[in-house]
């Protein structure tokens, strides 16, 4: 009795997007099937992992997350270098949290200066992630785009509120935009249409569908991402055929359970392994839903995901 595998016929393909510039540039996308369904399609370009670097010393990280970076947390350039040299990071994601007007409110100039240092310290592709305040991000990301002209940084989050300004500088100074919408397939599509109308080339758009942690809303992201991929591949929804980015490290490590010590949560086992597994399990689910770029924190969680990727994509 031989089983004939019922296959899905895919009519669409995810666009290939080049990240960064030079020898270390990477390309993501290009899928012609649901994630890892290699028995009926292709996924020749691996999903990539960007390691987080923060522009100011983290204050509320649990020891498990802090320990691998303890010697570099006050110096973003050294931090980025350690990620690349010690942990083999293939990408860096610089999180500009200190620019938040509700927090430290550092200026665009300061943010650009820090970015410049990080960009000069490493040669891998770099994501620049703002503080999620549309107005401030516009100011900060414009300055950075200009100062780092031609580097093909991935800049975001670009939202409906600031896509014109940031989109324009991305075109002018040759960067890639991360189009961010709040867990909604229609809004995601709409923003990609708007960016296209503005003149941002298709090769320079990534989707941020908004990410939640395991146990904290992950199911919403998971299903929206599945629907985005389904529309892109089987319904030829051309404005959704872009690779997806998930900024998950910060979501996981701010949850109560990722932070609790053994004394605070005796039933939750080893705090380091728990945090690592929560981050890796979140990443694993996002990969299954269609993530092409994962922004992650813990080197061990990253190692586990790389291992899984090798297994899932083995020839």
């Amino acid at each position: 009795m031989a089983l004939e595998i019922p296959k899905v016929s895919y009519s669409g393909k995810i666009k290939e997007i080049v990240l960064g510039k030079g020898d270390k540039a990477l390309t993501v996308g290009g899928e012609t099937s649901y994630p890892f369904y290699l028995f009926e399609g292709q996924m020749s370009l691996k999903p990539r992992i960007a390691m987080e670097v923060y522009d100011s010393t983290p204050e509320d990280w649990p020891p498990a997350a802090l320990e691998p970076f303890a010697d570099v947390v006050s110096d973003p350039a050294a931090w980025a270098k350690k990620c690349v040299d010690t942990y083999g990071a293939e990408m860096i994601a610089l999180q500009l949290v200190s620019t938040d007007p509700n927090g430290e409110n550092r200026s665009a100039e300061e943010a650009a200066a820090v970015t410049k240092k990080v960009v000069e310290a490493v040669d891998v592709p770099i994501i620049i992630w703002g503080c999620n305040n549309a107005e401030k991000d516009t100011e900060v990301l414009r300055k950075i785009a200009e100062d780092c002209a031609g580097r093909n940084l991935m800049i975001g989050p670009v939202t409906e509120a600031n896509y014109k300004q940031i989109g324009a500088v991305a075109i002018g100074y040759e960067h890639t935009v991360i189009a961010s919408t709040p867990i909604d397939i229609n809004l995601a599509k709409q923003l990609n249409i708007l960016l296209g109308n503005l003149g941002v080339p298709d090769g320079r758009i990534l989707i941020d569908p908004t990410t939640g942690s395991l146990g904290y809303g992950l199911e919403y992201c998971y299903s929206v991402m599945e629907r985005i991929r389904m529309a892109a591949l089987t319904q030829e929804d051309e404005r959704l055929q872009f690779p997806m980015v998930c900024n998950l490290g910060k979501e996981v490590w701010k949850t109560k359970e990722a932070k609790q010590s053994r004394e605070e949560a005796p039933k939750l086992g080893d705090p380091v392994k728990r945090g690592v597994l929560m981050e890796a399990a979140t990443a694993q689910l996002l990969l299954l839903a269609g993530a092409d770029i994962l922004i992650m924190r813990h080197p061990e969680a990253i190692g586990l995901i790389k291992d899984m990727l090798n297994d899932l994509l083995a020839a």
Binding site: L214, Y222, E257, A265, P266, K267, L268, G269, D270, P271, K273, R274, V276, L277, M278, A280, A281, Q284, L285, L288, E300, L304, I305, D307, M308
Partner: peptide
């Protein structure tokens, strides 16, 4: 650790029963 991740994949992708070799709070809770 990897066993837990494979289990995590199988939860999303249709497994009915997942038999695992070790249960501790840190792998069962996720």
């Amino acid at each position: 650790m990897k066993e837990t991740l494979i289990a995590s994949l199988l939860i999303a992708k249709y497994a009915g029963i997942i038999v695992i070799s070790e249960m501790e709070g840190h792998n069962v809770f996720p």
